[in-house]
């Protein structure tokens, strides 16, 4: 049998991070593909409810590595623990969520194990004894199929939303995995802060008009404001708009900003990178306005307008005003 598939879990507080359920789903499917078995590995100071929750997602076993240094996340301690355990048990694959925490230490684990690294997997298939992985390139505008060359373990992360978590009735056995290694944090965590801002709460807005880099500059924001006023919409933005200083940080939507699900979301001049999509794909109706007909945002939209937003936004303002008159 091929080596086992390990899924390295992540905690949020004492709960299981939601992306870990998806990572288990990917691991279970991978195990079926390569004829192996998936085990979920929890690195923690205290398992909390995470181990029990993980046990319901379809893995064959949940194994807990417990150590006081695994409380506050540090790449040094997490790499030390996971790579020491993996050196002993030699899993063939280590699956992680493509999250801010896991990707921070995943390359170190790969280095420690001399493993190939496949970040941000969105799909895979068996091929001639191996596995072919699909992952986004060019921020999701294209996707690539890649294959690992050579022998040895493979460390991979799976993109948010690509492998839906499947919670079942059965509960996998939970056991402890003894750590035979000294592990040391390699950074000091001084604290956590909320990103400063005037705290615009976009989560309650029924309509959001979101603008992206395609707006071109702060000087064009009046067109956006006029349409937002006509619609009664809040204004949101993709990250480059914020990074360029065209709007305040608290209007950012996406993985490092707010998560919204309005009834209507209009995305103007936004390409549709995953980090943006995770913050808005729960919206009831998405409209995309983009001059590039192949922009990925159209794939998750209900209505699309292919055109220059500098013309489309004022025309929409007129049409909305007319309809409301």
């Amino acid at each position: 049998m091929a080596g086992k598939v390990w899924v390295a879990l992540q905690q949020r507080g004492d709960e299981l991070h939601p992306m870990s359920g998806e990572a288990i789903a990917a691991g279970v499917r991978l195990a079926a593909t390569v004829g192996s078995e998936a085990e979920a590995i929890l690195l923690c100071a205290e398992p909390g409810t995470a181990a029990e929750t993980a046990a319901r997602y379809g893995a064959a076993a949940v194994r807990v590595i417990q150590h006081p240094s695994l409380g506050a996340y540090t790449p040094g301690a997490f790499t030390g623990a996971l790579s020491a355990a993996a050196s002993t048990e030699a899993p063939g694959w280590i699956v992680l969520a493509h999250s801010y925490q896991s990707v921070d230490y995943m390359p170190r684990v790969a280095h420690a194990l001399d493993a190939a690294l496949v970040p941000e997997v969105i799909d895979f298939r068996a091929d001639d004894g191996g596995v072919i992985w699909t992952r986004p390139v060019f921020a999701g505008k294209m996707q690539a199929e890649v294959r690992v060359r050579g022998e040895g373990p493979v460390v991979l992360s799976v993109q948010a939303g690509a492998f839906p978590a499947a919670q079942g009735e059965a509960s996998a056995p939970i056991s402890t995995l003894d750590l035979a290694a000294d592990i040391t944090p390699d950074r000091e965590v001084l604290g956590v802060e909320e990103v400063a801002g005037e705290h615009v709460d976009l989560t309650q807005a029924p309509i959001i008009l979101a603008v992206g880099r395609g707006i071109g500059g702060a000087e064009n924001m009046d067109k956006v404001e006029e349409l937002a006023a006509a619609l009664g919409a809040e204004i949101g933005a993709s990250r480059p708009v914020i990074d360029s200083g065209w709007l305040a940080r608290d209007r950012q939507i996406g993985s490092s900003g707010q998560t919204v699900a309005p009834k209507l979301y209009i995305a103007a001049g936004i390409s549709g990178a995953i980090q943006h999509l995770v913050g808005m794909k729960g919206s009831r109706c998405v409209v995309a306005i983009n001059k590039d007909a192949s922009a990925p945002i159209f794939a998750i939209s209900q209505y699309g307008i292919v055109g220059d937003l500098h013309e489309v936004l004022p025309a929409l303002t007129e049409a909305v005003k007319e309809a409301k008159a």
């Binding site: 390139v137 890649v146 690992v148 159209f298 292919v306 025309a315």
Partner: peptide, 24 residues
């Protein structure tokens, strides 16, 4: 360790209903 086999435009799924006509 990675070999790129192919790149392609991602499938659009159902995709958006694209509205046609002049801007107005």
């Amino acid at each position: 360790r990675l070999e790129f086999l192919s790149v392609s435009v991602p499938p659009k799924g159902e995709g958006a209903q694209i509205l046609e006509g002049d801007t107005a």
